[in-house]
Amino acid sequence: MALLGQDRTRTDEEVLQGDAATRALSVTAVENDFVEKVYDRLASVYDLTFGPTLHPGRVQALQRMQIHPGDRILEVGVGTGINCAMYPSNTEITGIDYSDAMLEKARERVARKGLKNVRLLQMDAQDLKFDDNAFDIVYAPYLISVVPDPVKVAQEMRRVCKPGGRIIFLNHFLSPNKLLSKAERLISPLMVHIGFKSDLDLPAFLAQANLQPVSIEKVNIPRIWSLVTCIKD
């Protein structure tokens, strides 16, 4: 009887948290080969289609990083390298991506701009080939909703981040509005063909990745994109 009484007094927040920890993140499943093909196709037009429209979020993300001289920063899903020139030159930048076509664009950009503090590697975000606690900041811009296993990626990001370091996600997540969320679930299998699932559940993602955000901010116009900042404890 005592256990039943305790269960009845659970708060709404606890109930929601428990549900988030077990519910599906998205209706759309993808594999690495599919993701690679999508981004190989997008490589030549990515900067034109997703460059200016998503740029305010990139700027705000860098502000939230609180970068210090000498910081080691890992960008997970570096894409065409659109962020590379934005980092201070007195930091060490490592950018990884699964798509060779996107990385080729990034290499061209880094060479063209003469960025000596950037290295680019082809790598699966679900299996980062770095030591534990290797980076001060680990950042995933416009990536987490298209990978096969978002939770695994977040766990890897956390693993390679130093204690007290920042783990940052810039992404679209499922709307809390019931009508909008239904629409986002319906179109998610189509949206993944242009680079992201439209229905990734943010509370479920954070709960299952065991991450506690210090801030969640809406960015870009329209404000359907979120900047999520976590600190590794």
Rank of each mutant, 00 (worst) to 15 (best):
V78T: 15
V78N: 04
V78F: 04
G79K: 00
G81T: 03
I82Q: 06
C84W: 00
A85S: 11
A85R: 11
M86P: 03
M86F: 06
Y87I: 11
P88K: 04
S89G: 04
T94W: 01
T94N: 02
T94Q: 00
G95P: 01
I96Y: 09
D97K: 13
D97A: 07
Y98Q: 07
S99N: 09
D100N: 12
A101C: 14
M102L: 03
L103H: 14
L103Q: 10
A106V: 07
R107Y: 10
R107C: 08
E108P: 05
R109A: 10
R109K: 10
V110K: 05
A111N: 12
R112G: 14
K113M: 14
G114I: 13
G114N: 11
L115H: 06
L115I: 02
N117K: 14
N117T: 11
R119D: 09
L120I: 00
L120K: 02
L121W: 11
Q122E: 03
M123F: 06
M123E: 01
M123N: 02
M123D: 06
Q126I: 00
L128M: 14
K129F: 05
D131G: 03
D131T: 05
D132P: 00
D132H: 08
A134L: 07
F135K: 09
I137Q: 08
A140D: 01
Y142S: 12
Y142L: 15
Y142C: 12
L143Y: 01
S145A: 15
P148G: 09
D149R: 05
P150N: 15
P150F: 08
P150H: 13
K152E: 14
K152P: 04
V153T: 03
A154M: 08
E156K: 12
E156C: 05
E156H: 12
M157F: 12
M157H: 07
R158T: 14
R158Y: 07
R159T: 14
V160T: 15
V160P: 02
C161D: 00
C161L: 08
K162Y: 04
P163E: 15
G165N: 05
G165I: 05
G165K: 08
R166M: 02
I167G: 02
F169M: 15
F169W: 11
L170T: 01
L170C: 01
H172F: 09
